[in-house]
């Protein structure tokens, strides 16, 4: 029981971090039906910005917030120069561009910070917050889950209460009609990219702030796979679905590792891919998605 609880807590913690990256994927997908394969790398770069700023003496939360802004600006630039020129319904060139970004950003980070693990500053108090049923819940776990919920809540508010948020949802819902009510589609999607990058950067920073992890240029490669399956589980166009999906994937991952001894640890990534496959095959709209998957 104690072990079970511990695994559940670990699962929730990891899952929250996946959920934040998943939300970033969902934001872009919702609006453009494009999966940004470079999302994880953009987030990794953002987390490195934060680390660098912190090493230069900026207080750690200040560093994270500045790097969120920097990532948002970078993403806005990427959207404007590399994404907008292409026909959104023709997927191949867009996939190629995001894969090019994937490769390029990863290499860039490797050139600047080398492929070495770096300690990331602890964003949350260290130590155990409380225990239930003998399982320890660290402050990191508590704060990570809470952050995910708070961030999603604020995103929700932003998208439903602000003018730009409403415009973004209008563009996601009906491109043509949104033009006909006078929304400038380009800048609105650019806003979505910026928002996604900021959320992704925060997610990556929180993920690598885990005391048992460190940051290196390859850190997000697997996280992106988990996040993508989380997003798919949630339906790819639902924010809260992404959170539920993230937690779900985190759960499955940590419980399988513990209770299915025939599935070795290395295969937790495979479970994510299998979940992805099964969901897309049998329930293409995920469990919270609104639209059918056939938006190809």
């Amino acid at each position: 029981m104690q072990l079970f609880l511990q695994r559940v807590i670990d699962g929730l913690t990891n899952g929250s971090a996946y959920a934040l990256v998943a939300v970033a994927l969902v934001l872009i997908f919702k609006a453009t039906t494009l999966i940004n394969f470079a999302q994880g790398e953009q987030a990794m770069l953002g987390a490195f910005f934060a680390l660098q700023l912190w090493m230069w003496g900026v207080p750690m939360w200040g560093a994270v917030i500045i790097s969120m802004i920097l990532s948002a600006l970078l993403a806005a630039l990427i959207e404007r120069t590399l994404i907008r020129p292409f026909d959104p319904s023709d997927h191949l060139p867009l996939v190629i561009v995001t894969l090019g970004l994937f490769l390029g950003i990863n290499a860039l980070a490797g050139l600047i910070w080398r492929f070495d693990p770096w300690r990331f500053p602890e964003l949350f108090p260290s130590g155990v917050a409380f225990s239930i049923g003998g399982a320890n819940v660290t402050w990191y776990a508590v704060c990570t889950v809470l952050s995910a919920i708070v961030i999603l809540g604020s995103l929700q508010l932003l998208l439903s209460r602000t003018k730009i948020g409403l415009a973004f949802r209008a563009v996601s819902s009906n491109l043509e009609s949104s033009q006909l009510v006078g929304i400038r589609v380009g800048p609105t999607l650019q806003f979505g990219w910026a928002l996604a990058a900021a959320v992704g950067t925060l997610g990556a920073s929180i993920y690598v702030a885990n005391p048992v992890l460190s940051i290196e240029p390859t850190v997000m490669l697997t996280v992106l796979v988990f996040a993508a399956s989380a997003a798919a589980l949630g339906g790819l166009d639902s924010l809260w679905g992404a959170l539920a999906g993230g937690l779900g994937i985190g759960f499955i991952q940590s419980l399988l590792v513990q209770y299915a001894p025939f599935i070795p640890t290395e295969l937790s990534l495979l479970t994510a891919v299998v979940v992805l496959l099964v969901v897309l095959f049998f329930r293409p709209a995920g469990f919270f998605g609104t639209a059918a998957v056939e938006r190809v």
């Binding site: 394969f37 997927h91 996939v95 295969l267 994510a272 891919v273 496959l277 897309l280 293409p284």
Partner: peptide, 24 residues
């Protein structure tokens, strides 16, 4: 059943899994 980007997602996921498969 799955088209376009979803297929890209799945297949890139499979590619990510291969090294850990052969290390089993």
């Amino acid at each position: 059943r799955v088209k376009g980007l979803y297929l890209a997602l799945i297949t890139l996921g499979l590619a990510a899994v291969f090294p850990s498969l052969v290390k089993l």
